[in-house]
Amino acid sequence: MKLVPIGVVVAVLVALPFLISGYHQGLATYVAIYFIAILGLNILTGYTGQISIGHGAFMAIGGYTTVLLSADQHWNLLATLPASLGISFVCGLIVGVPALRLSGVYLALATFALAVSVPQFPLKFSKFLGGSNGIHAAQTKSHLWLYVVGWSCSALAFAAAWLLLRGRIGRAFRAVRDSELAAVSSGVSLPIYKTLAFGVSAAFAGVAGSLLVLVTNGYAQPGEFGVLLSLEILIGAAVAGLGSLWGVIVGAVFIGLLPSVAPDVPLIGSAHGQDVVFGLIVVLIMLLLPNGFAGFLRRFEPRVKTTIKSDPKTS
């Protein structure tokens, strides 16, 4: 276990709110939100090999759960987070069942369908879900509160993902990813582990969605959860590198901070130039670092270790 890098990251995160303004704390919270969502997608795509372009939909489900519970039932905002975790988990399981029959490009299209369809429902059922203006949570919170809650959730999510992936379930996930046939022959149940991966991944996205709603002054609107959000999370996961937990922070920083780079930087500063840069970087990263940031880091790992491990006498 890499204790030193964890210690450094935690120290920076604890010190950060004392050093930066409220506005920048808000930005840092966005990074935390993307961190959780990308982590979730990485469990599904990177570890289980199922692609999803629909995680914005699960974020929408989480976000609307939080706002509805707060506005209609007057729940404490913190208490809504486990609720949205649970509801997104169940929704993920439900989506995971039909997804069992799909793979590759077909699964990408089906989940894309989900990302496009879900934001249409608040428009259709506007009495209950507020239409295009959205609905508003009962309270709004300070930047500092959001920062602390956002990064605490991130830490919990990271720990949960690490514990999940290092054990039996993680091994089963990776077995499914590498070869479904081999996994089945070794007694790994495909239906159970594939739907489980969808559920866990959706639960992460749901919590990220709840936090996203809170950080946008407590408003849940269909526009927040459009197709672009799903695409951004996929891109974040690609930048991070699939199948690695360590790259996720880089992917989250990339997605979270690029849109807020100072407006006086040429090209990036203007609203549309930003998309140009965003798209260019995505294409370049896929061409130059096909395994994302994690793959980049892996290049510097000492090769000796791996040769000792694969020595036929010891294995």
């Binding site: 372009i53 490009v105 203007s270 130039g273 998309d275 840069v277 965003f278 798209g279 061409l287």
Partner: peptide, 20 residues
């Protein structure tokens, strides 16, 4: 997966270029 992500990147890139 790489091709899908690249076309998603192109989606955003072209959109940005045209709007710009």
């Amino acid at each position: 997966i790489a091709v899908v992500i690249i076309t998603v990147g192109l989606f955003i890139l072209i959109d940005g270029l045209v709007t710009w």
